[in-house]
C-alpha cells in the first residue's frame, strides 16, 4: 500500500540530481576563496615579520616594510568613519523614525540606494572635484577620507535603517501611548535595541573601506613617502595603493613582497569581519525579545 510507484522513483531520481547540482555549485563558490587564501598564505607568509609591519620601505620599495602604508590605511579608515558614521546614523534615524511617507522621502531613499551603486572610480573623480579642488584641501588625508566617507555613507544609512526597522513597532506604540516623544522613544528603546545591527553594519563597512584603492588614489594616497604624515593636509601611503604599486609599477620586487602586503590587507579585513560577527553574536545574546 505504501510502496513506491515508478513515478515516485522517477521523482526521487530527479530531486537527487538537482541536489547534486546545487551542491557542486556551492563547492565551486567556496573553491576560489580557498585557493586565494591558500595562495596568499603560502606565498606571502615568508614576507611577514615584525620588521615587515614596523619598518619603512627600502631600496626603491623592493625591500623593507610597510609601516607607513599600514598606518596610512588606519588613518584613512578612521577619519572616513568619523565623518560617515554620525552623519549616516543621523540620516537613517530621520528617514526611519521621522520622515513622512511622501514622494520626497521616496526620492531620498532611491538616491541613497543609487549612491551605493556608484562605481568607486566615480567617487574618486567627485572627490578630486569637490574636496581636492573646490574646497582646496589638496591631495590630502582629509580629502581622501572625505571621499571614502561619501562612498561608505549609503551603506551606513541602509544598515542603520534596517536595524532600526527591525525593532518591533509595538515598542514604539507602547512608548507613544505613555506620552513619550519620538526622541524619548528612540533614545530609550529603539537605539538600545538596534545598536548591535548598526555596529555590525559599520564594522563590515570598515573592512570594505580598508581595501578601496580608486577613491584614495587621486585624492590623498601617495606612491611613496619617506616620512609619516604630520597633519590631515598631508598625503599618506595606503596598503591598497601600495599593493598596486609594488605589484605592477616597481621593477625587481621580490615575489613574496606583494603577497605579503596582500596578506596583511586581507588579514585586516578578516579580523574586522570576525570582530563584527563576534560582536553581533554577543549583543544578540543580550537581546531581550
Amino acid at each position: 500500500m505504501f510502496t513506491a510507484t515508478s513515478l515516485n522513483e522517477r521523482n526521487d531520481q530527479v530531486q537527487r540530481r538537482f541536489r547534486l547540482l546545487f551542491l557542486v555549485m556551492t563547492l565551486l563558490l567556496v573553491l576560489p576563496v580557498l585557493i586565494i587564501l591558500t595562495l596568499l598564505v603560502v606565498r606571502g607568509a615568508p614576507a611577514i615579520s615584525l620588521e615587515f609591519l614596523l619598518a619603512y620601505p627600502k631600496s626603491g620599495m623592493t625591500a623593507g616594510g610597510i609601516f607607513p602604508a599600514l598606518l596610512g590605511t588606519i588613518f584613512l579608515v578612521a577619519m572616513a568613519l568619523l565623518f560617515s558614521v554620525p552623519l549616516g546614523i543621523a540620516a537613517a534615524i530621520y528617514l526611519s523614525e521621522y520622515a513622512p511617507d511622501n514622494w520626497l522621502t521616496r526620492i531620498i531613499n532611491l538616491a541613497i540606494i543609487n549612491l551605493a551603486g556608484v562605481p568607486s572610480i566615480v567617487h574618486a573623480l567627485f572627490g578630486v572635484g569637490a574636496f581636492v579642488i573646490f574646497f582646496g584641501f589638496g591631495t590630502s588625508i582629509l580629502a581622501a577620507s572625505l571621499t571614502l566617507a561619501i562612498m561608505t555613507l549609503p551603506v551606513v544609512i541602509v544598515a542603520t535603517r534596517e536595524s532600526l526597522q527591525a525593532v518591533p513597532q509595538a515598542f514604539r506604540e507602547a512608548c507613544w501611548a505613555l506620552g513619550a516623544t519620538k526622541w524619548q522613544t528612540i533614545r530609550r528603546i529603539v537605539l538600545p535595541n538596534s545598536i548591535s545591527g548598526i555596529l555590525t553594519g559599520v564594522i563590515l563597512e570598515v573592512s570594505r573601506t580598508a581595501g578601496e584603492t580608486a577613491p584614495i588614489m587621486f585624492t590623498g594616497a601617495a606612491f611613496f613617502l619617506p616620512f609619516l604624515p604630520e597633519s590631515v593636509y598631508d598625503q599618506t601611503m595606503a596598503l591598497s595603493l601600495h599593493l598596486f604599486v609594488v605589484a605592477t609599477q616597481v621593477p625587481d620586487v621580490p615575489d613574496h613582497l606583494p603577497y605579503g602586503v596582500a596578506l596583511v590587507l586581507v588579514g585586516i579585513v578578516l579580523i574586522m569581519n570576525a570582530t563584527s560577527i563576534g560582536f553581533r553574536t554577543y549583543l544578540r545574546g543580550k537581546k531581550k525579545w
Binding site: E173, W176, L178, G179, K287, K288
Partner: peptide
C-alpha cells in the same frame, strides 16, 4: 499637549507589549 493627554488617558494593546527592559 499630546504628552499630557496620554498621561491622563492610558492605553492597553491587543498583544501585550512590555518594553524590552
Amino acid at each position: 499637549e499630546l504628552a499630557q493627554l496620554r498621561k491622563q488617558v492610558g492605553m492597553v494593546f491587543q498583544r501585550p507589549n512590555p518594553l524590552p527592559i
